[in-house]
Design a protein around this nucleic acid. Sequence first.
DNA 1: ATGCCTTTCCCAGAAAGA
Length: 260
Amino acid sequence: MRIATWNVNSVVARLPRLVEWLEQAAPDVVCLQETKVGDDAFPCEAVKPLGYEVEHLGEGRWNGVALLSRAGFADVDRGLPGDPGFPDQATAEARTLAATCGQVRVRSVYVPNGRTPDDPHYAYKLRWLAALREAVAQDSAGSTPFALMGDFNIAPTDADVWDPAAFAGSTHVTKAERDQLAELLATGLSDVTPRIAKGNPFTYWDYRGGNFHKGMGMRIDLVLANAALTERISDAWIDREARKGKGPSDHAPVVVDLSR
DNA sequence: ATGCCTTTCCCAGAAAGA
């Protein structure tokens, strides 16, 4: 079984690249982030011929997460209990959904960006991560193979950014964010580090300034696996080819192969 | 150099991304 996660930065703008990638990579289950469409506008018909059913939690212009599955769906869980919302609890955003697809349970996540450490959005990011931890604890500790996959907007270590000095005072690398990631892992998950391609471990490169070609990226798209899933992993890598060429997302997919 | 690109709203330029 092959599972994957990809922040597509608009599923509508990325549709030709998404379909091409699904045909080539042929994953069984895919977690998508930043679909940027409402539920009625998700292009389900474009992926159905490839064998995929779709579960989507969208809100329109921003955010939006989806699951594509060739292994069916059960126990679909939309959104986050206790979601702090932004700017307040009345306005929860479309940032996570989970489902069981055949033998594995997956949860697609799009963690809030945080903007800057002194921005209210940063405090929201930390609160949202705490709520996420509550939501995944049971799956993390369970005997069903489970993967929490998506755009975490956190670089786990300084080796996961192209230049730690360039991120001084920025979000994505602060101790509080990394502490939240550690708390998430402490529920029973491990960070599945993909094979290194071309000397760096990155999954995201800013569109500006030719950053991709200069190797100026970050590893912020993660697969966090529980023990039952970890023992089935046969391979994991970052599909850099999807970041090349015409009209790419600024993120590359992370792909994980399971032995059964 | 607080920018550099891309997307959405929808037709002008702001907001957001990270």
